[in-house]
């Protein structure tokens, strides 16, 4: 995993696709949609069970956004935060119970254990942040924010954008990737020397799965929180 030889790739329209990313990503997208779809069937004034769960989730992600984005500007980013949180959460958990490898090549795992995927999302967040800044202040004022403390700060500001992009994407990737890596190693250990190692490995695997599930939830939360922080920074310059 992570090794290029263990990933099936295919070409389409002049672009190279990673089969593992495509399959696991599709599964995660479908799971998220089914989850939301199933819970939102009977929307009534007096909420039922499913609606309660969904409303709690919406309140939760809105709460994350409201924690950093000032005033009533959260409305525009609510849907993004909600979808991002659900997708990252389910992606993080996907690899914990479903990993399919055919002929030594991965096909299904956590989509977020690939840096390309996580960096796509961090790029999307930073683009939204830039876009929101331009929409609110106009081009001139938005980019004058890069000269904020004083003019010579410009390289540091640009570098900060770049590091934000990298750390946001790589943080979640690192945690999920290492979690799955250790799961695989423990799995290999279980089957290495028959029954004796299996007895040792099963509780270890269970403990690590539980910890990974916890970390996956935390990382989804952290990603959305930091997204909100980066967006809010672009909405607050020069105020």
């Amino acid at each position: 995993m992570g090794d290029p030889s263990s990933v099936a790739t295919f070409q389409f329209g002049g672009l190279t696709f990673n089969a593992a990313n495509i399959f696991s990503g599709l599964i995660a997208f479908v799971l998220v949609f089914l989850f939301v779809f199933a819970l939102s069937r009977h929307i009534t004034m007096k909420p039922g069970k499913g609606q309660n769960v969904l409303e709690w989730l919406i309140d939760f992600t809105n709460g994350i956004l409201k924690g950093s984005i000032p005033g009533n500007e959260t409305g525009a980013f609510g849907l993004y935060g909600f979808t991002l949180f659900l997708f990252l959460f389910i992606s993080n958990q996907l690899g914990l119970f479903l990993q399919i490898a055919v002929g030594g090549k991965d096909f299904v795992r956590s989509p977020t254990s690939d840096p390309i995927v996580t960096m796509s999302f961090s790029l999307a967040t930073l683009m939204i942040a830039q876009f929101a800044g331009v929409m609110k202040f106009g081009w001139k004022k938005h980019f004058s924010g890069y000269l904020q403390p004083f003019v010579f700060w410009l390289p540091i500001s640009i570098f900060e954008e770049f590091t934000n992009f990298l750390t946001l994407g790589l943080r979640i990737f690192g945690v999920i990737f290492s979690g799955e890596m250790l799961l695989k190693i423990i799995g290999n250990l279980a089957f290495s020397h028959g029954i004796a190692t299996m007895i040792v490995a099963v509780p270890l695997e269970m403990v690590w799965q539980g910890f990974s599930a916890f970390l996956g939830a935390i990382q989804a939360y952290v990603f959305v929180t930091l997204s909100a922080v980066y967006i809010s920074k672009k909405l607050e310059i020069g105020e």
């Binding site: 790739t9 389409f12 672009l15 190279t16 696709f17 990673n18 990313n21 495509i22 990503g25 599709l26 997208f29 979808t83 997708f87 989509p111 690939d114 390309i116 995927v117 796509s120 999302f121 790029l123 999307a124």
Partner: peptide
């Protein structure tokens, strides 16, 4: 060589 395809796929799907 991998990135663009996957990124596009994820962006569109998202």
């Amino acid at each position: 060589s991998l990135a663009i395809g996957d990124m596009l796929f994820y962006a569109i799907c998202f």
